[in-house]
Design a binder for these strands. Structure first.
Lengths: 205, 205, 205, 205
DNA sequence: CCATAAGCGAGACGGTACGTCTCGTCTTCCG
DNA sequence: CGGAAGACGAGACGTACCGTCTCGCTTATGG
């Protein structure tokens, strides 16, 4: 039973508008980049008035978070038979996502903005970051089922380790892609995964 | 006959202005954050005309890169006697640097901006990123001298490994600090270093 | 089967709404003035939906004309025994009406608006201006009965003279009140009336 | 000796911009009328940025006062040989001025606005109203020189009379033109002048 | 030793985008 | 079916910065 909590009176908000806006935001991000993206441009592209935009999103950064969040949900953990192969696969997928112009320009910008805006940071975590931790948890579960990893009885430690793994994977791939501006190819993914899993073994033992 | 000497005539540029501008930029960054930082504000704080500012830096992003670059040069690799201790030390230092408000807000912003501006990316690499790789190289050298690490005869592979290490360290610390917004304390540094060095052993063997 | 009867079914229009709207318009005019008066504000004050308001009045100016017209109907020509006294009385009354904030701000504004809107001009004449000419006609009739003024046999000329008197009285009082921003006190009224009646004598002779 | 009071520093304001703006304002007023006149439109027509407009005039109403004020300075009191002829001439001129679309729409609008804005009222008086009183004073002087009018020894009373004459002339012509929307032709001017001068005689005796 | 030339502060300039406001219309549901 | 509630497309508002452009200084060399 979900509480619907609707206002009940007056004309309801257009659902089409929402998706048109998010779609337009992604397109404009890809073409113009974060700093040249304007609310007015998004409104025009979406065929919507500026007021409609501001009624739903108070700021550019929040709009962009929502617009790109859905892209991150496309990430999957394909079962390739071994933990290493699974990690390599997700690393490649993640890097491919970061190569898309709308993601590339948006991600660092909203993180930068979030350093001064607690609400924005929360939105980023809720809409993007925390939802990808599922991949780490699922990967571990699968590896444990396969017997590749031992089960950690201390749940607090297990959670800390998952966070560490997430920071290492996401951080390294983002840094390689956006800062070093080098490609994340099969070879890099293999080497990186070897480092991660090798290191993990030493940490857990 | 080409005149070899340039900028001989006319009033020379004020050296004080340069440092006042960079100092003002850092201060304003800390107080206002990237997105509210304006060229006009920097000029006012530095007691300088906008013209003077634009004569030296064509854009906000380049100014900010120069303003924060010097902060990164403060990072050192103190000799703590073991590779692990050295790495832990530099991780803590790096995290402390990222906690400073001017660095925190500036770094991600200029990286975001650089996704659409090749010249800016180059400037970031030259002024900030590449200069910190010296820490990785120095650390490895020191560890090899101590006998903690073998010498890699294949120089190309050695370079690739250094890049990987750099991406992993910088990426993980940045992600932990700015995205996860969790503190990089002694414990995290120890665990992360264990993972990194443990993984490195498996990669190199 | 076409429904033959119209406006039989459905909820009839609220008569209360009309007076609430006009009352709210006068109140808002007094507080905000013409230029800050908005349809939305009137609707809110009247406890009425904007739709209801627009269904009855197509534009702000027409609403305001109706709202203030009723105030002008309060003007009377009290029988003070002589033509001069009657005129003085009506001049004072008219000036007092123009001192009310809602009238003051509304009258000139709708006249200004009417310079570009023939329908509005007609509405103003019908609702406000022409209805006050009765005062001129009544005053003349009374003066003729008293023998203070001769009867003009040429009805066209009589009408022209009435129009002239009306323009002079209304124009002078409005100009004194709103443009010169000087008070219309007993003395001014007496002097002005003397000028008017004295002049009238020379015109008619 | 006029105090020049100039800022001396920085780029001086463009004198061309001022006249282009006022000219554009008059043109736009004539075409669009007061209520459709926008600051942006004026700026565009003048080939000027909105900021430049707002730097000089804080509001539409003040801009319009300045724009139309100059038109009122065109009024003259031509010497036609007799007081009556002079008055008739100025009445016709004034009416012709009020028939121009830019004046017609602007005058009542700024007066309406001034009922809520003391500074605007002052500006109107300074820039428009008081400057036309010269016509009354000059006309009287000329009539006195001709011997058509006696010299009034009581200067305060003389001033009050001049104000009265001004309110009557300006008020009647404005009312006839803008409210009654009837033409001020030769005949009306003659009748009105007869009334005014006849009345004046009774007042002054 | 003063002409030349660049740098400097101040601030106006033509622009662009902002985020808000009001307009007049259009759903929606309630009575 | 009238009415309240309120979302909608449109577009003006007045402000903030942008990066450029005069201005009238100031400070260096170099003829």
């Amino acid at each position: 039973m979900v509480a619907v909590m609707c206002s009940r009176k007056g004309r309801p908000r257009s659902a089409e508008a929402d998706s048109a806006i998010l779609e337009a935001t992604r397109a404009a991000l890809g073409e113009l980049g974060w700093s040249k993206l304007t609310m007015g441009e998004v409104a025009t592209r979406a065929g919507v008035a500026k007021t409609t935009l501001y009624r739903r999103w108070p700021a550019k950064s929040e709009l962009v978070v929502d617009a790109v969040a859905v892209l991150f949900d496309e990430l999957e953990l394909p079962d390739r038979g071994s933990l290493a192969a699974d990690v390599e696969g997700v690393v490649i997928q993640f890097a491919a996502l970061l190569e898309r112009p709308e993601t590339k320009t948006a991600l660092m910008a909203v993180v930068a903005e979030s350093t001064r805006d607690e609400a924005l940071r929360a939105r980023i975590r809720t809409s993007i970051v925390d939802r990808q931790k599922r991949l780490v948890l699922l990967g571990r579960e699968r590896a444990q089922t396969r017997g590749e990893l031992p089960r950690e009885p201390d749940t607090a430690k297990a959670a800390r380790t998952a966070d560490l793994i997430f920071d290492v994977i996401a951080g390294a791939v983002v840094h390689r892609t956006l800062v070093s501006a080098e490609p994340v190819d099969e070879e890099w993914a293999r080497t990186f995964t070897a480092l991660l899993l090798g290191g993990l073994a030493s940490v857990q033992s």
